[in-house]
Design a protein around this nucleic acid. Structure first.
Lengths: 195, 195, 195, 195
DNA sequence: AATGAATGAGAGTTCATTCAT
DNA sequence: AATGAATGAACTCTCATTCAT
């Protein structure tokens, strides 16, 4: 009846698959439209199986939270092998690439952002993320001035805030139009003197 | 002024009061937490009464949508009595003021923004709004260059996109910190040569 | 389709009917087998209607608790118009009658008794009931000795405890056989010198 | 004595341990709160292991039934080495001791008693037990009259019923207070002329 | 214009049970 | 002999919506 070759997935996969399905659902329908039964069905298991891996819907959401944050952190600049301004350029390129390859991530991030004001668990992690991001931007801007790869007087703190706000606004808030987004990021680079 | 001794409110008031309550609820709990019963209770009427004024929850939401858009449009620059750059400054000041005086508006706008990808009715109106906003910015920037109140070469289109993205990111996405927001807007003005 | 003449019951009736149905279910299937859907169906309404009157299953159970206690208290001797020994005889007759006419009451009382050790709300009310009962017995026994309608030395306290224990054991614990119960109560009266 | 180093228990032990755990759970939470997972966890095994030993929850309950009945029968008078009235006194002492040392037994007996009206298997065995008990009481009372160790006219049948009802009422139905129980049993003995 | 009462559909969660390993 | 993983069925509870009054 069931295909012989349908080998049972190792447990880690099931858990991950459920998170991925929930992630997908949130991107598509928002927290508002997240249904445990649909998530389970998307993975091809019973709802009870979902509760075997995640005791509650909230636990599943936390799983999605971790997953999304992990994906997002991959964009933050990490390699100090190049000049600060090149790192900044790399970061912007990374964001552009991520928006192109994983548009769902930003939909989910937007949902998490709005929810962060109501859910302390999300709030905590979400704020940490924004703090790290802003600090990284500020650090790179300051370093770029110090090593001369960026010139002119600037308030690194304020510019970091602007960068984060602009990227969030461009990536997380509809309407999403790839062309416009590229334009916006390019203009942001220009305003920083990177182009 | 209003008729004395617990007179029944005129229908327009009821309708508006319900929209206001729903608006408040969305700001506080998001679409996810919007309950018709709670909205009705906040106004002091029965749920059935809510459905007398709004045939469905969605109709109520559309009421909120209109209300929010109306509030928001008031910030857009309208009076051509001053120079273009002054109008831009005035717009930024207006946004700052609005964030300070009606923080709920931006919470609701954020919710509407995310919902706009799933709800065609919201999507339509929301996109219109952003288009109008961006066009206004582009127009003012172009005019400012033309009348000489802003100097230097610039791509008005790209800058308008950046302005809109940055303001949205700063005002609609948590975490909200007044000081940071002021800083961000100020930096945005600086990057445009307005300071 | 639905009978025109089926007039909607007044609200108090609905509430009472639900309690009665739950009472009946508990008598028949125990707390273990109490299902809100079945209770609602027995009254001929939707489960949601049950929750309209009782916010939770526990609230419904509390309704049953009150109902059972009220029924039970009607057996306790109240009229001091006769001699103490006659009042005792009357009480025993009342218990016998109640067991005959409302056997369900004792099934429910048994369930409540067992639950009383786990549910503080039930525990409180249940214990109160037994305390009142025992005190009433003790008072009547003492009075009967004082007014001479019962003779011989006796420890009213201990006898009251025995009376309550024996009646509970006979009425609340299966197997229930009417003949045996009558026999038991008769013997209890004999042991007190009432026969 | 037992094989060292976490040896797997012999099957009989496992089975008994599961029954003991279920017994304990029923005493604590009633049939209403009996969960196979909790029972298994208390023994330190998987739920599936429980089902290896007991094909169904009902089978486990039957195991508890047998265990409880076995424990309870140990109280019934068995040794005809003394006079009938001494055997009666011994029985009462045995009940008192059992209530003190194994209060859980009576909680479980109460649960079984209520369930006996719904579960034929329990009903059968439970009724048998009460019949045996009552018959033993009646026999001893008759014998005590015959051998002169108890005097006065008496209806052994009715007194046996009273004894069983009173002991059940005192031991199986809350509220349980050791002092009151001793008092009740003592009064019961007195009423039979045993004190 | 307003409501108390009622409901269908569906939500998240639980639980005894099964089965491949 | 034992288990991790999985499930169907059923549970209580919620919510937007309806309707007679």
């Amino acid at each position: 009846m069931s295909p012989r070759s349908a080998a049972p997935k190792p447990p880690a996969d099931r858990s991950q698959a459920l998170v991925a399905a929930a992630y997908h659902q949130i991107a598509q329908r928002g927290f508002e439209g997240l249904r445990t039964r649909v998530v389970a069905a998307e993975v091809g298991v019973n709802v009870a199986t979902l509760h075997y891996y995640f005791p509650s819907k909230e636990a599943l959401i936390r799983g999605v939270l971790n997953h999304a944050m992990q994906r997002f952190r991959s964009t933050l600049p990490a390699s100090p092998s190049s000049s600060a301004s090149d790192q900044l350029r790399g970061h912007f390129a990374g964001v552009r690439r991520l928006v192109r390859d994983e548009p769902e991530l930003f939909a989910v991030m937007g949902e998490l952002a709005l929810r962060s004001t109501r859910d302390p668990v999300i709030g905590e992690i979400y704020q940490q993320m924004t703090d790290v991001w802003r600090a990284a931007m500020r650090g790179l801007l300051a370093k770029a001035v110090a090593d001369g790869s960026l010139t002119g007087p600037r308030d690194a703190d304020a510019q970091a805030s602007l960068v984060v706000a602009a990227l969030m606004g461009a990536c997380m808030i509809p309407p999403f139009r790839p062309a416009r987004l590229r334009e916006t990021v390019a203009e942001l680079e220009r305003s920083l003197g990177l182009r």
